[in-house]
């Protein structure tokens, strides 16, 4: 996509090619889609285009990670960690911020979260050190009060090989702390990802969660 020629062989103006290139870098955007979006943006009123560009910059400037749960937030601690009505005694461990959204949508869970930002994938060189695993341990070990307060950790990593490996690793890590560790029920079929599960499936998976064996 670096040449200044479109797929039809006609020359493309450099600013157009640049935008196509940038969009093509986004996950899930192939070169055809990048072109389609580019031409959509070209036809867009300037006011809307400016608003989109500003929204992207605002996200970069104002959004970061919650010090406690590592979720994406514009305040620290995040709205969930700071909410006194949430159950402070349970932590639900998920792979990605999008998983928090999926669980919140289901309304099945009222506790706190820990976002790992990935899953163990040895072949890709992603081990526990590359994830926010240490943050979870520190959170539990930081003060005895927190350790007394937390009575359950729910492992809600995906039910694929990487998610299962991550859950097993966390279970091994958490065992000495003598906190109850549970795993979501198998309503989520093997290979699937939490982010794509519907609300009913997620609710059932939470209700049927079991002690990690």
């Amino acid at each position: 996509m670096t040449s200044n020629f479109g797929t039809d062989g006609l020359p493309t103006a450099p600013p157009v090619a640049r935008l196509v290139d940038e969009l093509h870098k986004l996950p899930g955007i192939g070169s055809k889609n990048a072109q389609r979006l580019t031409y959509h943006l070209i036809r867009m009123p300037e006011r809307e285009a400016r608003s989109l560009a500003e929204a992207i910059l605002a996200v970069k400037e104002q959004v970061g990670f919650c010090d406690q749960c590592q979720n994406i937030t514009d305040q620290n601690p995040c709205a969930i960690c700071a909410n006194p009505n949430r159950d402070q005694g349970t932590i639900c461990v998920v792979e990605e911020p999008l998983d928090v959204l999926a669980v919140e949508r289901s309304g099945a869970y009222k506790g706190l979260y820990q976002v790992l930002h990935g899953a163990i994938s040895p072949m890709s060189g992603i081990g526990p050190e590359e994830l926010k695993v240490g943050d979870l341990l520190n959170r539990l070990k930081a003060d005895a009060a927190a350790q007394d307060q937390i009575h359950e950790i729910i492992l809600a990593t995906n039910s694929n090989l990487e998610g299962e490996a991550t859950a097993m690793y966390l279970h091994r890590l958490l065992a000495p702390l003598e906190i109850r560790v549970t795993r979501l029920a198998r309503g989520l079929s093997t290979g699937s990802e939490l982010e794509y599960a519907d609300e009913v499936t997620i609710s059932r998976a939470f209700e049927g969660r079991q002690d990690f064996a």
Partner: peptide
């Protein structure tokens, strides 16, 4: 659509 919760193929196509 292997990442969909209802994918019938996903369970068969896990690594190993």
């Amino acid at each position: 659509s292997l990442r969909r919760a209802k994918s019938k193929l996903a369970g068969h196509l896990e690594p190993l």
